[in-house]
Simulated scan of single mutants.
Amino acid sequence: MKKYISLFVIAGIVHTLFSLYWGLGGNAGLITVGSWVFTLSARFGIWMNMALIVVALIKFGATVIPLTLTNHFDKRIYYISLAGSVFLILYGGINTIVGWLKLFKIIENHNYFSTIGQAFVWDPLFLLWGIGLLGYVLSLHKFMSKA
């Protein structure tokens, strides 16, 4: 169970910290997300920063709330975490594959840097987050059913 916790917590916290960093005005690595971020930032200014901070808070909650299942099993948190893990696996997995298809020029690539982020950084992190969360939730369920 600990290996799953490490996997999803690290992936979730990395996502959280970058969203928070960008929300606070940082822009290192932002080009790997896509040029649309710069367009929205230019158009909405501080509102875009606030939205990124809210996204960071949601990612943080999605990372730490499932950890409460270790001490207190709650069916709602369990099923939300289960659904969230499946979503993260599908979202991260599909987008990672799409990123690779863009790199191999099977799909048209409009932005090289965002494709690198999609194929190697952000979407694989979503995939790992989902795999870790799913492994954790399923192993926890087996542990709780024995009690």
Rank of each mutant, 00 (worst) to 15 (best):
L133D: 13
K2M: 05
L20Q: 02
S41V: 00
G135V: 01
L7D: 00
F60H: 04
G132T: 03
L133S: 08
K102D: 03
I58V: 15
Y136R: 07
L40N: 14
V33H: 08
F87P: 05
I106Y: 09
I58F: 13
N49M: 08
E108L: 13
A147L: 11
F143I: 04
G135C: 00
Y112H: 13
I31V: 01
N27V: 05
V121H: 03
Y112T: 11
H15G: 14
M48R: 01
M50S: 12
L134T: 05
L40E: 14
G12W: 06
F120S: 02
A56L: 08
L57E: 04
K59V: 04
V98R: 12
G117P: 10
I13N: 05
V14S: 00
I89P: 02
V14L: 15
A83E: 03
L140R: 12
L52F: 15
A147I: 10
V137T: 15
I107C: 04
A28P: 01
Y79A: 07
L40G: 12
L7K: 07
L101M: 15
V33E: 11
A83T: 10
F38I: 00
L69C: 03
K102H: 12
H141Y: 15
L140I: 06
T115K: 00
K142F: 07
H72S: 14
I58G: 10
L82Y: 14
T63E: 08
K2T: 03
M1Q: 09
L140Q: 09
V64N: 02
W122A: 01
F18L: 14
L82N: 05
I131R: 07
F18W: 15
S19G: 04
S6D: 10
F44P: 03
T68S: 14
M1N: 01
S139F: 07
T32Q: 03
V55Q: 07
Y21G: 09
H72Y: 09
I10F: 14
K75D: 14
S114D: 13
A147D: 09
F104N: 05
H72N: 14
R76M: 10
L101C: 01
H110G: 09
K3R: 10
G23N: 06
G12I: 11
I13F: 12
T68H: 03
F113S: 10
V64M: 06
H15K: 10
Q118D: 04
L17F: 11
H141I: 02
N27S: 12
I97H: 07
A28T: 09
I107K: 12
A51R: 02
G29N: 03
I31N: 02
I13Y: 06
A147C: 02
V54L: 10
D74P: 00
M1D: 09
A62H: 06
F143H: 03
L20H: 02
L52N: 11
I77R: 07
K2W: 00
V121Y: 08
D74A: 04
K146N: 13
L30N: 05
